[in-house]
């Protein structure tokens, strides 16, 4: 059976059947590495992030990179046309990706992207929200929970203040944004299950 990689972090979902599993994995890794590096560069710019221990910086990034990428690449999911743009620039319809083996994760990603984009956040708001997504004290393996929690609270306060200032008549936006955090966790868990299944195969 022909294998496809339906994650848009690939250049294309099509896999060269001549390539070994290792080569396919290497190519996939090569595709998403620049995006992961950008997440690390973003994290470094969050005031206070570099003051956390090295262990906690790595733990937060390991646990949260997928969620940050989902937020950053929400625009790859065109809800109106029901298409996904891969990193190679080509668009694929949901039906095509479904036929290639895409799971319910794809529909969940569409739902999330639609709701997030509909909030109409500015670049600054989206950036601060992304920082809140990354700095979560309840990630596994955090050594100094108090430090991460303190930074998380500072970022949440800053986000609330920015949203209140920019949208004085839309107080629900901040609540809606906080409710996106469990949605992202759920997507992260679904994605981890997919990765597990992929590795087992």
């Amino acid at each position: 059976k022909r294998m496809h990689l339906v994650c848009p972090m690939n250049t294309s979902p099509h896999v060269d059947p001549q390539k070994s599993g290792h080569e396919v994995w290497e190519e996939f890794s090569h595709s998403f590495t620049p995006a992961v590096r950008e997440v690390v560069e973003f994290a470094k710019k969050i005031p206070g992030f570099r003051d956390l221990s090295q262990h906690d910086q790595v733990s937060l990034l390991k646990a949260g990179t997928f969620e940050v990428l989902v937020v950053r690449f929400a625009s790859l999911f065109d809800v109106k046309d029901r298409t996904v743009t891969f990193l190679g620039g080509k668009k694929y319809s949901v039906d095509t990706l479904r036929a290639m083996g895409a799971s319910d994760l794809l529909n969940s990603m569409f739902d999330f992207s639609e709701k997030l984009i509909n909030l109409g956040l500015s670049e600054e708001e989206m950036s601060l929200f992304t920082a809140v997504v990354l700095v979560s004290a309840d990630r596994s393996g955090i050594e100094n929970v108090n430090s991460v929690e303190a930074l998380q609270e500072t970022l949440i306060r800053a986000l609330r203040s920015l949203i209140t200032k920019n949208h004085p008549n839309e107080s629900a936006i901040f609540t809606k944004l906080l409710l996106k955090l469990p949605d992202l966790r759920s997507l992260n868990n679904m994605h981890s299950e997919q990765l597990l299944a992929f590795k087992v195969h």
Partner: peptide, 27 residues
């Protein structure tokens, strides 16, 4: 298998990307 980030090689990429910054701090 319980750590998808490590399986993806993500931890290695993250550590390398953080490294320059962390070395600066140690100096």
């Amino acid at each position: 298998f319980n750590d998808p980030a490590s399986n993806l090689g993500l931890e290695d990429i993250i550590r390398k990307a953080l490294m320059g910054n962390l070395e600066e701090r140690q100096e």
